[in-house]
Design a protein around this nucleic acid. Structure first.
Lengths: 148, 148
DNA sequence: CGGTCTAATGCAACGCGTTGCAATAAGGAG
DNA sequence: CTCCTTATTGCAACGCGTTGCATTAGACCG
């Protein structure tokens, strides 16, 4: 968690980056970004909307989602799908990790880039497929539940 | 595609299997099953509802989804999430295959069990994780789009 | 053939996210 | 500072799926 008032470098140039693309710097976008900058890791769409509403009760969901689309274009966030298919946003810069979910015990956790690479390599070798490992949560059973 | 009137073996005992569990054999369930039996492979939830409505215009979505839950308990279908997070149902018996989706060209295709096993093995070895490969659609870039 | 128990249905409301469209407001030009 | 262009917003409606609850109707029993 970040101290308010010390925006990470990733967010600092954003106002200019938007303008350079002919996009606009609005109060609503400022809010979304303020919330995102205060986050580390993941948020679901609904959670993000909630947090924006805390900052500005007049927040409209569709505006938040559209802002996220723009930020994704800029490479500042990436969306994925959780175990239940819900939207999940990763704030960048983030290591290229993966997510696993155990259907038996309900746990969800991350695997680091090195582990994720073994999966990536498997698909690259056989299928020539370059997986976006962070995009979906892989579902199955964890070591504990599988052996039990 | 199946010829009407020749239900596959998998569905034949279902009426009894339901009753054995204290569940009931209803007209609505019959409809869902009739639609499923006429299918090979996948359907999205919405598509299935649509097809049921063709059979009985009075079909209610929530009933269809609840029936699918029951059938999943019985092991006759399994649900997964498509590239966009939508529900997708696999009719059994189905080989334990995987699904890939290319974000660049939009294609979605299957990989057979053997290929899927390389992914499974990668996760089993490192993480002790038993992936349910059919549950989610893996997203990334296909060979063509990746090299281009 | 009723009577009884309770699984299943229909319905209405909700949750998350997306989309179309008219109204608003950035932000560059004069 | 005012005007103009058009990106963005707010809003309302939609799509897919889920949930709670009162009502209906399977299916077993005597």
């Amino acid at each position: 968690m970040r101290r308010p008032g010390s925006p990470p470098a990733a967010w600092s140039g954003i106002e200019q980056r938007l303008r350079d693309r002919g996009l606009r710097w609005t109060a609503q976008r400022r809010n979304v970004i303020e919330v995102l900058a205060d986050l580390d890791g993941h948020v679901t769409g609904a959670e993000l909307v909630e947090r924006c509403r805390a900052l500005d009760p007049a927040t409209i969901p569709s505006t938040v989602y559209r802002t996220l689309d723009v930020l994704e274009d800029l490479g500042l966030v990436r969306h994925g799908h959780g175990a239940d298919g819900r939207e999940e946003y990763h704030v960048l810069p983030a290591p290229d990790h993966g997510h696993l979910h155990c259907t038996e015990c309900g746990a969800t956790w991350e695997i680091d880039a090195a582990r994720a690479d073994t999966v990536r390599d498997a698909l690259r070798a056989g299928e020539g497929f370059e997986i976006d490992i962070g995009h979906v949560t892989l579902v199955g059973r964890c070591r504990g539940c599988a052996t039990r």
